[in-house]
């Protein structure tokens, strides 16, 4: 992608809250970051984690608790959540990379289930209700994230939006740098042929683990940010449905493309809100999209677009 395209995307992100309801836009950004983090594993390392909700939701709980009860400022809260997710990712990753392929997916799913049970049972998580009323607080102790501005007759929470957008850009930049670094090239080599990468002298296990930790930390950052935006950390955030949703976002947008997860997350989140009138049928629709995607649309939106334009997006 050339510089002009990046500048246009950045401008669109900056202008978005004036066109789209900011809270909805922030939800999109949180899930887009989550999917970007996930795609670093599936798309660039070839590892299918079916337990990424553990990092997303786990960080949401940790951030929520620290901000609400220990009085941390939002940026420190999010940092704590991210570090927690990284540590959890190190533990889960170390265990999961001991098995290959399809077993890897099952191990991550089962380990994430432990986190789910903990979130249900631990005293500070609020059980079925989750953690509610997490304060948004003051960024760096000075900038009021609750503050709304009157723009063209609408009241917009711009402080919070630009904070979330900055975090998203940071996450995007980290993913982009990782993919395009020599480290990222090794990850791709592992994805293409693990035995060959090993025989070339790369310590495959270590590369996989580092990729896993980066991915879980960023997934945690997404979840932590979400808990500040919605002032809520709930069981849904750590459930296997959420793990499945992030897989779908990545698949729909295009596995192994830079912009695919963002497009996929935007599509899935928009569908969920536009189709909220169908109630529980949304699960059926999501399942149907999954099936169609796997059967006929494995490249995803961005993958197909890239094929038409004959360039990597």
């Amino acid at each position: 992608m050339n510089r002009l395209a990046w500048i246009l995307l950045l401008a669109a992100g900056l202008a978005a809250p004036f066109a789209v309801y900011p809270v909805f836009m922030m939800k999109l950004l949180c899930f887009a970051l989550f999917a970007l983090a996930f795609n670093l594993l599936l798309g660039y390392t070839g590892l299918l984690s079916f337990g990424h909700a553990a990092f997303f939701g786990g960080a949401a709980y940790v951030t929520g608790h620290l901000v609400k009860h220990a009085g941390l400022t939002p940026e420190l809260g999010i940092l704590s959540g991210t570090l927690f997710a990284a540590a959890l990712g190190w533990v889960v990753g170390s265990l999961a990379i001991r098995r290959q392929g399809i077993y890897f997916a099952m191990v991550t799913l089962a380990l994430a289930q432990i986190v789910y049970f903990l979130a249900l049972k631990l005293p500070f998580t609020g059980g079925e209700d989750g953690l509610q009323g997490i304060p948004r607080g003051f960024l760096f102790g000075v900038i009021d994230l609750q503050r709304h501005y009157a723009v063209a007759g609408k009241s917009l929470g711009l402080n919070l939006y630009y904070f979330v957008f900055a975090l998203f850009c940071l996450g995007f930049w980290i993913v982009h740098r990782t993919i395009h670094s020599p480290f990222g090239q090794v990850l791709k080599a592992i994805r293409e042929n693990e035995a060959r990468a090993l025989s070339l002298g790369y310590r495959v296990e270590r590369f996989k683990l580092i990729a896993f930790v980066i991915s879980s930390a960023l997934a945690g950052m997404a979840g932590a940010t979400k808990s500040i935006v919605f002032q809520l950390a709930s069981l849904t955030d750590v459930s296997w449905h959420t793990s499945g949703e992030v897989v779908l976002m990545t698949l729909l947008g295009g596995v192994g493309t830079v912009l695919g997860p963002v497009a996929g997350a935007f599509t899935v989140v928009t569908l969920q809100s536009e189709l909220s009138f169908v109630g529980p049928w949304i699960t059926v629709i999501i399942g149907g999209i999954f099936v169609v995607c796997v059967l006929v649309f494995r490249r995803g939106f961005v993958g197909e677009l890239g094929r038409i334009l004959k360039r990597a997006l």
Partner: peptide
């Protein structure tokens, strides 16, 4: 795995 996951969501839904 992904295809059968989708089918599971449909049935459960």
């Amino acid at each position: 795995l992904l295809l059968t996951f989708g089918l599971a969501l449909i049935l459960q839904g």
